[in-house]
Design a protein around this nucleic acid. Structure first.
Lengths: 360, 360
DNA sequence: CGGATTTGTTTATTGGTTGAATTATTTGGC
DNA sequence: GCCAAATAATTCAACCAATAAACAAATCCG
């Protein structure tokens, strides 16, 4: 119960735009001021919240003391491995990117072990730099373009040519990372989460990432839906033209063959139509009120929009009752890496009690 | 916290096949025997659990007292209105159907007020019969073939010809129902929930209901996913052939035009192919491990299966990594009505503390 | 018939929240 | 310039609920 209330208080602070006082938190959560005081004291002592000297003034009475997430406490290490680059970043509790390292290089020749060793070195640099800055790395998360099981095994990453790679084990061979909890997730899933932090509005949307392949991450009510086996979001292989072009997956008429990175440049109207058909299916099925186009789609957004919206309007049953919002992603190439770091931050924010136990 | 633990104990009893003792519940939940005793006593006093005289015997030691959901406590009133019939049933806490009334008649000429008045009369009979049997109706839920908003307004029910009908208000005009909380939901959604009780295994599946239209209910981890506006599951209007047959919704090539009730009889292979294409989209997107075919599909299941599975095998990206189970629904025409009653039971089971307060 | 064994209850203790009273710090009025 | 009003935060006694451990009850086994 205390654990639950600690998380409740922390979320209230995180979600409030200004710097709430203890009394404001009590009012927002329904807890007593006394209870909030006790909880906040623990969170401050544990290095999750900081009291701000210049509090936001109001009318009469004793001035409140502002509270905010600390920028010197736990931080998340976000990692990404993709066909043509490696990246690592450190994001603190407030969501600020404190370190960022990117290394451009074709990863296909290196193989899994080579790539992960290089990424491990990058991650170690990021960690040391962050810790010199007063941060404590709470864990790491890795984004990969492939299918990942719940326990972090990369089953298959077609564009990297990987199969059954135990990425956490390989990363932990780097001494500086040996003690970290490391999770692995699909790139589109994490990019979807990354976009969530930037999104002010509705926390339910489909994020579509157009790269060489097409992936999607489904955010339902602020949480990533991963599917039973973690393999949700394979929108690239939705059938749009049943007897259409053959796909490398063995089927015919997959979205990827019409709205993949190369088709995007050569036949834009067809890409928009195919995307529109696939996205209509998603909306009909899940009633998602918003769709975010990321990856390679973001720069093409203005040109894709009319074609997609025409199909949505035509094919979505409830189009007349409520509109579907279509918007470009705001994070760009860093989305997956940021989302990865966010999952770590999120685990601390969702269970502050565990962090306090660990921090003593 | 007490509320949470009451629900935990109640769920443990509900989900256990035998009749657990207080000690067995303690072992299963991790709570202390003392705590469980206190909670169980409250649940027994509140008429949710009963102690069974002939307990399941074992080796040595003091014999246990078996516990089970009571069949004389709160019950749910499940209602359904469809094109050619009205139905009402009462389901008790254990899931047993205690009353069942069906009235076959074309509802289109009656209009919303006429149909709901007739349904109200049916519901009143069901309630009185159930209460004579010692049950207490905790609430009612209504299944309709149409789009329903979160607050129970039927926005549009095309096959009934209804628009913007406030069904709860009309039902509450019947004196015997005036005091009941009444919710309304889409027929396919509730049928999906109805199937859940019968399903022993995986609580994540898509239920597809083939009637005049085609609807679907998505059960994710034991919970119905309704979508942001409650309009999820409109699988009938997934595009399977982009330039195909015109649909009454205005689009072309909707699943409904190839796998609706009439096409089902006339062109079975095409229906199977179309269903396979649409279901592949669902699996690629959501990674659902099981699909249940209900409504008019159930009797056709053996003949549809090969065609659907061929498409799934071809078009689902992860088909080689893990299979998708396809099975027929077991409940038949009563699924939606039973699911409706189940939502009421479910609300009691998920928050027994509220019921105890109400029961005194 | 007596010890072993398991169930269920009783009792004292602890963790955590609540509510009322208390202290602290400002604004505003006379 | 001082006092009252207002608001923020803390302290303290009371209470609720879960725990642990001891205890009572009911059965089996030798």
């Amino acid at each position: 119960m205390r654990a639950h209330n600690l998380a409740l208080v922390l979320h209230t602070v995180a979600n409030s735009a200004d710097r709430p006082s203890r009394a404001a938190i009590a009012a927002a959560t329904g807890l007593t001021r006394a209870t909030v005081s006790a909880l906040v004291d623990d969170l401050v002592a544990g290095g999750l919240l900081t009291e701000l000297d210049p509090p936001p003034r109001t009318g009469a009475g004793r001035p409140a003391v502002g509270l905010a997430l600390t920028s010197a406490g736990p931080a998340g290490l976000g990692l990404e491995i993709n066909v043509d680059y490696l990246a690592a970043c450190v994001v603190d509790l407030t969501g600020a990117v404190r370190q960022r390292f990117v290394e451009h290089a074709d990863q296909r020749p290196a193989g899994a072990e080579g790539s992960l060793a290089a990424l491990g070195a990058l991650a170690a640099r990021a960690r040391l730099a962050a810790e010199a800055d007063g941060l404590i790395i709470a864990g790491a998360a890795l984004a990969v373009p492939g299918l990942v099981t719940a326990d972090g095994l990369i089953r298959v990453a077609p564009n990297l040519g990987w199969q059954d790679v135990d990425a956490p084990a390989l990363l932990r061979e780097v001494p500086e990372l040996a003690d970290l909890p490391i999770t692995v997730d699909n790139e589109a899933n994490l990019a979807a989460l990354g976009e969530l932090r930037v999104t002010g509005g509705d926390p339910t949307y489909l994020y579509v990432s157009g790269e060489i392949g097409i992936g999607a991450g489904l955010i339902l009510d602020g949480d990533l839906y991963r599917g039973v086996r973690g393999w949700s979001g394979e929108i690239g292989h939705l059938t749009v033209f049943p007897d259409g072009r053959p796909c490398r997956c063995g089927a015919h008429g997959c979205l990827e063959q019409y709205a993949g990175q190369e088709s995007l440049a050569t036949d834009e109207p067809l890409a928009a139509q195919a995307l529109g058909i696939a996205l209509s299916a998603v909306v009909n099925l899940l009633d998602v009120p918003a769709i975010v186009l990321g990856g390679a789609y973001a720069p093409f957004f203005p040109r894709l929009r009319p074609g997609i919206e025409a199909e949505l309007h035509r094919r979505v049953l409830t189009a007349g009752l409520a509109p579907v919002t279509l918007r470009p992603a705001t994070l760009g190439a860093d989305a997956a890496m940021r989302g990865a770091a966010d999952t770590v931050i999120r685990s601390v924010r969702d269970d502050p009690a565990a962090w306090l136990r660990r921090a003593g």
